[in-house]
Design a protein around this nucleic acid. Structure first.
Length: 625
DNA sequence: GTAGGGTTAG
């Protein structure tokens, strides 16, 4: 440190202004000790900072992580200037104090000091973060009085402020009235439309842009991904790579596109983007690695997920990283791995949060680790200082419900300290499907119908339970109710990725070009399966029709179509990865176990809740899902 | 100095 200090003081500073370049050179270097020594040197000469030097010192301290000292210096300056105010405003925003920043700006205004084109972008960003449209409008008005309407930074910040305060109309008006727009103004508005789910408006603007930069493309990609339009996100990403060689994806772009791969369960394409990210040097980035863990887990490859997890350095393994890995294990029904990862996390000194426990408890639940799960739930508050929320109670209800301990589950619902929501009743109703209890099922369903009257899934679930009990009249009543309220059962769909291309099948779908071959294979299948001991489980065909007809309905479930397509179009022995938009049905689950043995294939099915790894006649869930 | 960002059950 001494050796660093000497050359800094070599000029032998005597006057206040001599120190300014020294503090400036220390700004952003994170050399706090050195800065303090220079400060001491100054104080020993009896010098007090003026507004100009104060601004430099505030910047130095703030950028070195010492906000308190920055504030102290700020208060010592007798005659503050706009520059000094800009500096302390920057200091507060750097440390995330939005409300304080706005207060400081108010103070500045009361002293009669005018904000400039450096003041407003920061202050507006804070208004946006606070979602405080009243203050935002006030600051907007004051910025106009200073004649800053033609400053593009201020203009874009204003648009962004209105966007984040959900006032798209005002944002658009500003944009339309701007005399000079730059690409950032367009980007802010596009991101705003995407936030609001106004995809078409965003697309229209994007189409009109003459020059797009990486932020424009990323706004579209992340916008699509956040609106659940994974395919569009992926195709815009591809288009960007193909068309615009000027534009280079960066880590934010990769972060935005990864969830889209996860959503489509497109493992092959996911691997490609991983290679791509490594190629541009992003593989050492912990956030990217975390997103990769999630992507691989959701694409069905736990081993790749674990590899990415292991590549993250110990010191960089934060809460989000651990949560992602624990949740990954949970969704693959690897309860004991979820538990051991949780224990590793605690040993590493990372404090778990509510998301950690949702993952841990659901992991226990999916693996039948009932008592282990209950033990962790009991210790949440006392051992780990995490207050249980309604989702944790839902996990416990699920945990007990899956194990058939319905009365205990009901008891938890009665005694929980908050009102039972849809997640609780939903868990209970699902439990009643595998462990029939009409009374509890009807109670749960009644609550669900009043809490979420438009969720057709609940009606279908109850109707399944009635069907299994052979109560066809009740099934019909529900179907009529469903129809009269204009609700449709969401159609079952499955897709499979073959050679990097996703093939989608709906239940009973005959539109695929290979439909003939697929149906021929599916007709063959039951014979081979029956020879191996398979009995079709017609409880899952939701019609009061003849046995043969039920059986036929079952053979054309979308997951079977996708698996048949996979068998026909991949090399023998290749792993099949199928994704389904609903929960896999019991008959398909049994059939897939047989298929995995007959064809010697590993088949991984991701349904709406979790993964099923089928291998040699068994499923990883142990028929427990 | 402005715009684009990952992890959460059923």
């Amino acid at each position: 440190m001494r050796t660093l200090l000497k050359p800094l003081l070599a000029q032998n500073p005597c006057f206040i202004l001599d120190y300014a370049p020294i503090f400036q050179s220390l700004t952003g270097q994170n050399l706090l000790k050195l800065g303090q020594q220079v400060h001491t040197h100054m104080v020993l000469r009896g010098l007090e900072p003026n507004a100009y030097l104060g601004a430099k010192m505030v910047a130095m301290y703030a950028s070195s992580g010492d906000l308190d000292s920055a504030v102290n210096v700020f208060h010592r300056v007798k005659y503050p200037s706009p520059l000094l105010y800009n500096s302390i405003i920057r200091a507060y925003t750097l440390h995330g104090y939005s409300a304080r920043t706005v207060e400081i700006y108010g103070q500045m205004h009361c002293l009669g000091l005018k904000g400039d084109h450096f003041t407003y972008p920061f202050v507006l960003k804070c208004c946006a973060e606070l979602s405080n449209i009243l203050i935002g409008k006030c600051v907007h008005g004051l910025s106009l009085r200073t004649g800053l309407e033609s400053d593009m930074y201020v203009g874009t910040s204003l648009i962004d402020m209105y966007v984040k305060c959900c006032e798209m109309g005002s944002a658009r008006k500003l944009f339309d009235e701007m005399s000079v727009r730059d690409v950032s103004s367009w980007n802010a508005l596009i991101a705003g439309y995407m936030r609001e789910g106004e995809i078409y408006s965003a697309e229209e603007l994007f189409g009109q842009m003459r020059c797009k930069n990486i932020v424009s493309w990323t706004a579209m990609i992340s916008g699509y991904a956040q609106n659940g339009l994974a395919e569009q996100a992926l195709s815009v990403f591809d288009e960007m790579l193909k068309k615009d060689s000027e534009v280079k994806p960066n880590w934010v772009t990769v972060m935005s596109v990864l969830p889209a791969f996860a959503h489509s369960a497109a493992l092959e394409r996911g691997r490609k983007i991983h290679k791509f990210a490594s190629g541009i040097g992003l593989d050492s980035n912990a956030s990217i690695q975390t997103a990769l863990v999630a992507m691989y887990a959701k694409c069905g490859s736990l081993s790749d997920a674990r590899q990415c997890f292991d590549r993250i350095r110990g010191s960089e393994k934060n809460l989000v990283v651990w949560n992602t890995m624990i949740t990954a294990y949970a969704s693959h029904a690897r309860g004991s791995e979820a538990v051991s990862t949780f224990e590793d996390m605690v040993r590493a000194g990372v404090q778990p949060d509510h998301i950690t426990f949702t993952g841990l408890l659901s992991g226990c639940s999916h693996s039948g680790l009932v008592d282990v799960g209950l033990k962790y739930f009991d210790g949440m508050k006392t051992v780990y200082s995490v207050q249980p929320r309604v989702e944790h109670y839902a996990c416990v209800v699920d945990l007990l419900g899956r194990a058939g301990r319905l009365m205990e589950a009901m008891d938890v619902v009665d005694k929980m300290p908050m009102q039972a929501g849809p997640s609780i009743w939903g868990a209970l109703l699902s439990a009643c499907r595998n462990h029939p209890n009409l009374e509890i099922a009807e109670t749960a369903a009644r609550n669900l119908f009043s809490l979420e009257p438009d969720n057709s899934g609940n009606y279908v679930l109850l109707s399944n339970i009635y069907a299994e009990a052979g109560m066809w009249k009740e099934v019909d009543k529900l179907r009529i109710l469903l129809k009269s309220q204009g609700m449709k059962k969401s159609p079952g769909g499955s897709w499979i990725e073959v050679n990097g291309k996703a093939h989608l099948f709906l239940g009973g779908d005959t539109s695929h070009s290979q439909a003939n071959e697929i149906y021929m294979l599916l007709e063959e299948l039951p014979k081979r399966m029956k020879a191996a001991g398979y009995v079709p489980d017609t409880r899952f065909a939701l019609h009061d029709v003849s046995e043969e007809e039920k059986e036929h309905n079952l053979t054309t479930h979308s997951e079977k179509l996708a698996i048949a397509f996979g068998l026909l179009n991949t090399d023998p022995g290749a792993v099949l990865r199928v994704t389904k938009n609903l929960r896999i049905c019991g008959d398909c689950h049994t059939a897939t176990k047989f298929i995995s043995r007959i064809y010697g294939r590993e088949i991984i099915v991701r349904d709406v809740n979790r993964f099923h790894h089928f291998k040699d006649g068994h499923c990883s869930c142990g028929d427990y899902w």
